[in-house]
Computed example of a mutant assay.
Amino acid sequence: MAQPKRKSCHSRAAKRATHKKASMPAMSKCPRCGAVKLPHAICPSCGYYNDKEILKIEE
């Protein structure tokens, strides 16, 4: 099996690892009810997506 000829430096390893960090997902506001939701997803509070009722939410 092949072995690396030189030790990889810390900055090179950190550049690879920078994409693996955990972060908050992007959030958007529902245009219908104003609740915070994930973009391109059904609103959990009103059940609408793209001005169409997808889920029946009982209040």
Results as ranks from 00 to 15, higher is better:
41 A>L: 07
49 Y>N: 05
54 I>T: 10
28 S>L: 04
26 A>G: 04
26 A>P: 06
36 V>G: 02
1 M>P: 09
19 H>V: 14
5 K>C: 08
27 M>T: 09
23 S>N: 06
21 K>S: 05
49 Y>K: 15
37 K>G: 00
33 C>F: 00
12 R>A: 13
29 K>E: 04
23 S>T: 11
41 A>Q: 11
51 D>H: 07
23 S>F: 15
51 D>N: 12
17 A>I: 04
9 C>D: 09
33 C>E: 00
43 C>L: 04
57 I>H: 00
25 P>W: 13
17 A>K: 11
55 L>T: 08
36 V>Y: 10
51 D>S: 09
36 V>A: 04
20 K>T: 06
11 S>N: 12
3 Q>T: 14
51 D>W: 05
12 R>V: 12
11 S>K: 07
48 Y>H: 08
58 E>Q: 08
55 L>Q: 03
12 R>F: 14
53 E>R: 09
16 R>F: 13
31 P>Y: 06
23 S>I: 10
15 K>R: 12
27 M>R: 14
56 K>N: 10
31 P>M: 05
38 L>N: 08
57 I>W: 00
29 K>S: 07
49 Y>T: 00
4 P>C: 15
39 P>Q: 13
32 R>P: 00
53 E>I: 02
21 K>F: 12
39 P>W: 05
28 S>I: 14
57 I>V: 09
59 E>P: 06
17 A>G: 07
39 P>L: 03
9 C>N: 10
44 P>H: 07
22 A>G: 05
31 P>R: 10
6 R>Q: 07
42 I>L: 04
42 I>Q: 01
13 A>L: 15
28 S>W: 08
57 I>E: 00
51 D>Y: 08
24 M>I: 11
26 A>N: 13
2 A>H: 13
3 Q>L: 10
44 P>V: 01
41 A>R: 14
39 P>M: 05
41 A>F: 02
53 E>T: 03
56 K>D: 10
36 V>W: 04
49 Y>L: 10
11 S>V: 04
7 K>G: 12
16 R>H: 07
34 G>A: 04
58 E>D: 07
57 I>K: 06
